[in-house]
Amino acid sequence: MTHLVPLAKEVDDDKVTPGVLGFIVFAVMALAVWGLMKSMNKHMRKVDFKDPESDTESAKESAKESASRS
C-alpha cells in the first residue's frame, strides 16, 4: 500500500478511508438524486393545482350570470 501513496510519511493500516469505491458510490447516488429531482420537476409542472371547490364556485357564478342575462 505504501507504494501507492509515496507522499505520505506514514501509512496507518488501522485507518479506514472510503477510497475510490466510496467516491464512486457517492457520485452515483448524487447523479441519481439529480435525475430524480429533474424528473420530479417535469412531472410537477404537469399537475393542475386548482382547488375543486373554487371550480364549482366559478361554475355557480357563471350559471348565475347566464341566468340573469336571459
Rank of each mutant, 00 (worst) to 15 (best):
S70P: 05
L4I: 10
V25E: 02
L31T: 08
K42P: 02
P6V: 03
V20M: 10
K50R: 15
M44G: 01
E65P: 02
A27T: 13
K38S: 13
E61N: 05
S68Y: 11
E61H: 04
A30Q: 05
S39P: 00
V47Q: 01
L36N: 04
V5C: 13
P18A: 14
K38D: 07
V11A: 02
E53M: 05
A32R: 10
R69M: 05
V11G: 00
P52A: 00
E53K: 03
L4E: 05
D55E: 15
K38M: 13
K64Q: 06
W34R: 08
F26I: 02
R69A: 09
T2R: 14
V33A: 08
K15Q: 14
D12H: 05
G22W: 01
D48E: 11
K15C: 09
E65S: 07
S70N: 15
S70W: 12
P18Y: 10
T2G: 09
E65L: 12
F23K: 12
T56I: 15
E65Q: 07
M29R: 13
L4V: 10
V33P: 01
N41K: 15
K50H: 12
D48K: 02
A59N: 10
E10K: 15
V47C: 02
S54D: 15
K50W: 08
E53L: 00
K50M: 11
L36E: 01
L7N: 12
A67M: 08
L21N: 06
N41R: 13
D48P: 00
S70K: 15
L7G: 08
M1K: 09
S62F: 13
K46L: 14
K38H: 08
T17G: 08
V25I: 15
S58P: 00
P52E: 02
T56N: 07
F23G: 13
V11E: 01
E61C: 01
P52F: 02
K60N: 08
F49P: 06
S39A: 13
